[in-house]
């Protein structure tokens, strides 16, 4: 078994394990830990494809930012409600829909891919040239979107406080 296969298997195990944790747990903090494991697995998958910049951004933005934000929100909600945050309502119909969509995705896209293990990608060095060159408009639009989201958060929270 080559090192590439091991790296892919590790990242895939993190992704699936984290996703299963999110789907099955009743404890809200375990849900966040499961989501963190999943996001680290996604970062590992980016590394596997040779996109180190993307993996770094994933860890900084998600594991360092979004998860902390979720924990703060859980602290506020849990304190306000004074009860466990999660309820389990597993449903065979929803499981069938989820499995059906997974199968549909696989059956639809399986002709588009080659072998079982993909080739490693290119190094992430030229990403700056791409972002500040050909993709500069999209890059600026993404910055604008983040600014709009920030203002929207302030407006939503401010409106909630005024009431």
């Amino acid at each position: 078994m080559s090192l590439d296969t091991v790296a892919f298997a590790l990242a895939a195990a993190l992704m699936v394990g984290g996703a299963l944790g999110v789907a099955l747990t009743k404890d809200v903090m375990r849900l966040v830990v499961g989501l963190g494991a999943f996001l680290l697995g996604v970062a590992g998958m980016f590394l596997y494809y040779g996109h180190a910049f993307l993996a770094t951004a994933q860890v900084f933005v998600y594991v360092g930012g979004v998860l902390v934000l979720m924990i703060f929100a859980i602290m506020v909600v849990h304190r306000a409600n004074g009860r466990p945050v999660l309820e389990a309502r597993h449903d065979i119909g929803a499981a069938a829909i989820g499995a059906g969509v997974s199968g549909m995705l696989f059956m639809t896209l399986r002709e588009s891919v080659g072998g079982w293990l993909p080739q490693s990608g290119t190094p992430g060095g030229p990403i700056a040239v791409e972002l500040l060159g050909r993709s500069i408009v999209v890059f600026e639009l993404a910055g604008g979107l983040l600014l709009i989201a920030l203002v929207a958060v302030l407006v939503i929270v401010g409106a909630g406080e005024r009431r």
């Binding site: 895939a12 299963l20 789907a23 998958m45 829909i97 969509v101 896209l109 993909p118």
Partner: peptide
């Protein structure tokens, strides 16, 4: 192909959640 199987399965799990 393995990435496709993995991502389809995780997408289905997300939809289930």
């Amino acid at each position: 192909m393995s990435a496709l199987v993995l991502c389809a399965a995780v997408f289905g799990l997300g939809l289930y959640v």
